[in-house]
Each structure stands twice: as structure tokens, then as C-alpha cells.
């Protein structure tokens, strides 16, 4: 497909001018950049960051990932890291068993809000409290995306889902659970942060959070969690272009971005990463 508009530059091939490539299509640790997630989905953006950080830390050959069940599960076939596919909600325990047998490896989980905060809430809490040296990565879009946009434990008040058609009502549906805040008082927790992929600045900050979380694991400081707010235009029933704005206004209101625990010590909510 080519444009006949005069002002459009050719972006098909490599540039002919002397230049340096500063960013590649897909991260090195993906077998294939083509995937079947929806247009405008935030999950692949977060997965890119995760894989880039593992690569940049030099742990590509020393990492074991445990993948939960949600839309991101489609990446189990694409991520070029040794993986264990867990059942819905069960990744933190699986990561625990693997880490205890291979303490020299970097262990991470990749889970959604439905997976971690609904089905497997007690898993992540106990894993944190045991101070397991694993890094849990939560892709929080406030819905069960995979099943078609249903309410999860992180769905914001007022948010419309297929099981909260008039918007989440505290009296009827109960309140959202801010999982990152919930882990703050636990001993054993070394690093907790919440990022987002709503815009490029947030993406850059979130990548720094992932790096810190893994560095805490490598330093043997205990449990770490990075929660990443991701767009789900399909499950939010909005146009893709409205995703970032909706994320900030609806999910971001309940789940504020920032670092919550650094070096095992709680830091002020909303501090930038």
C-alpha cells in the first residue's frame, strides 16, 4: 500500500541517509512480532518492556517465566524464554516452586487482573509475604479481556462491563481491590510499583520499574511486583484511540501510578518512578 500524497515520506525500507537504528520492531526475545491481540491492546506494549529488560539485564539465558491465563497467554507461544504455562491464578505458586529449585534463575510471572487479583489473590499475597525472590508482573486492564469484558476485582467504580452493565456500583458489586497497595505492609516485599502504557512517558517509566523489580530479585531482596495498567478497548467497549484517555481517567483514578515500595521500604503513594 503506498500513498500518493506528496508530503508523505517513504517508510517502507531502511533509510538511505547515514543513520543509526535506535529502536527495533519487536523485542529480541519474541519469536514473532505478529500476534492476535486486538488493535489498541496495551498488553503487547507491556510484554515488550518485560522482554527488553530481561535482555538488557543479560538474563535471556537465565530466566524462567510463568504465564497466567488471559489474553496475554497467546504470547506463551511467542516469547523466546523458557516458560511454564500455569493455570488461571496459579502462577505465583508455580514460580515459587521453580525458584526454590533454581534460585540462580530470574523468575517472573505474567498475569492479568482477573488472574492475579480474582482467581489467585491469595497466591500473590502469600508469595509476597513469604518474600519469595520472584517478580510478579500484573497487566491490569480492569476486566476479564479474554472472556469478553467482564468485571474483575480491579474494575473501577462506575466502569461498565458485561457484568456491571450500568457501571460498577459499590453497593451491588463491591469495591475494587488496589493490589499494589495491599502488598505494601507485608514483610518480604522489596519492590512494588504501578506503571502504565497509556503514553510514551509512562511506558519509559514502567520499563524503569521493571528493571528495578528485577534488580531487587537479582540482589536477593525478596518479592517484587510491577503492576502495569493496560488498555483494553475491546473489553471497555470504546474506540482504540480513546483507550489511553479512558485508562487515565477511569482505571488510573483508582490505581494511581507510582512506586509504593522501594528497597523494602514503603514510599509515598504516587511518587514517580
Amino acid at each position: 500500500m503506498s500513498s500518493d500524497r506528496l508530503d508523505v515520506l517513504d517508510t517502507h525500507g531502511r533509510p538511505t541517509r547515514v543513520s543509526t537504528r535506535v529502536g527495533e520492531f519487536e523485542p529480541k526475545l519474541l519469536l514473532d512480532g505478529e500476534h492476535d491481540l486486538c488493535p489498541g491492546c496495551g498488553e503487547p506494549v507491556a510484554i515488550r518492556l518485560l522482554l527488553e529488560v530481561i535482555e538488557e539485564l543479560g538474563y535471556a539465558q537465565d530466566s524462567i517465566g510463568v504465564i497466567g491465563i488471559g489474553c496475554y497467554t497467546a504470547f506463551t507461544g511467542l516469547i523466546d524464554v523458557d516458560l511454564i504455562q500455569a493455570l488461571h491464578g496459579r502462577a505465583p505458586s508455580v514460580a515459587t516452586g521453580a525458584k526454590r529449585m533454581r534460585p540462580d534463575k530470574l523468575l517472573f510471572t505474567l498475569q492479568g487482573d482477573g488472574d492475579m487479583v480474582n482467581e489467585g489473590l491469595q497466591e500473590v499475597i502469600h508469595t509476597a509475604a513469604r518474600g519469595e525472590s520472584v517478580t510478579c508482573v500484573l497487566l491490569n486492564n480492569g476486566v476479564f479481556g479474554e472472556t469478553g469484558g467482564h468485571m474483575t476485582a480491579t474494575t473501577a467504580l462506575g466502569q461498565r462491563t458485561k457484568t456491571s452493565l450500568e457501571g460498577r456500583d459499590a453497593d451491588y458489586h463491591g469495591y475494587p481491590i488496589p493490589i499494589a497497595e495491599l502488598l505494601v505492609p507485608l514483610g518480604g516485599v522489596s519492590y512494588v510499583a504501578r506503571g502504565s502504557v497509556a503514553d510514551a512517558k509512562s511506558v519509559v517509566r514502567t520499563k524503569a520499574m521493571l528493571r528495578k523489580a528485577f534488580e531487587a530479585q537479582i540482589a536477593g531482596e525478596g518479592f517484587s511486583l510491577v503492576e502495569i495498567l493496560t488498555m483494553c478497548p475491546t473489553g471497555w467497549f470504546i474506540p482504540t484511540a480513546d483507550g489511553p484517555g479512558y485508562l487515565d481517567e477511569v482505571l488510573g483514578e483508582v490505581h494511581a501510578a507510582g512506586e509504593l515500595v522501594v528497597g523494602g521500604k514503603p514510599v509515598g503513594k504516587g511518587a514517580s518512578g
Binding site: I64, V66, R90, S93, V94, T96, G97, H126
Partner: peptide, 12 residues
């Protein structure tokens, strides 16, 4: 969780 942990250990 007990069987989940065992799952992870077995996988290694």
C-alpha cells in the same frame, strides 16, 4: 498452592 508449587519444582 501446594500443588502449584510442586508444579513449578517439577518443571525445573
Amino acid at each position: 498452592e501446594a500443588i502449584g508449587m510442586t508444579w513449578g519444582a517439577l518443571a525445573t
